[in-house]
């Protein structure tokens, strides 16, 4: 396996400024989306905890569903990011 080869020389990557900038911008946009989603969770828990205990879907409350959604959103945004990032030539 690749990981067992020790003497592989490290290669310095060639950096293309436009690709680096594109990837960084993509990352920041997706980050902002997640921050808003996570911020909503924090605000709801801290200031409207009664809302969190209300059943929302199939008898499961807002707290559990929002928690699962945050975990799921992290996975989905990670995949979107991977698709949107450009590779260095």
């Amino acid at each position: 396996m690749a990981g067992l080869h020790f003497n592989t020389p490290e290669s310095r990557e060639t950096e293309d400024a436009t690709i680096v900038a594109h990837n960084a911008r993509t990352g920041l946009i997706l980050f902002a989306i997640y921050v808003a989603f996570y911020g909503g969770f924090m605000a709801l828990s801290a200031f409207w905890p009664a809302v969190m205990s209300q059943p929302l879907l199939a008898g499961v409350n807002v707290a559990v569903l929002y928690g699962f959604a945050l975990i799921g959103a992290a996975m989905i945004l990670a995949l979107i990011y991977m698709r949107m990032c450009r590779k260095a030539k």
């Binding site: 960084a24 920041l28 928690g67 975990i71 992290a74 990011y81």
Partner: peptide, 22 residues
């Protein structure tokens, strides 16, 4: 306890989108 699970995973968003590549 599950709040920690949520927070621990959310932290990876910072790692992936902001920190990993630079």
């Amino acid at each position: 306890g599950f709040l920690y699970s949520i927070g621990y995973l959310a932290g990876w968003i910072v790692a992936l989108f902001i920190v990993a590549e630079p």
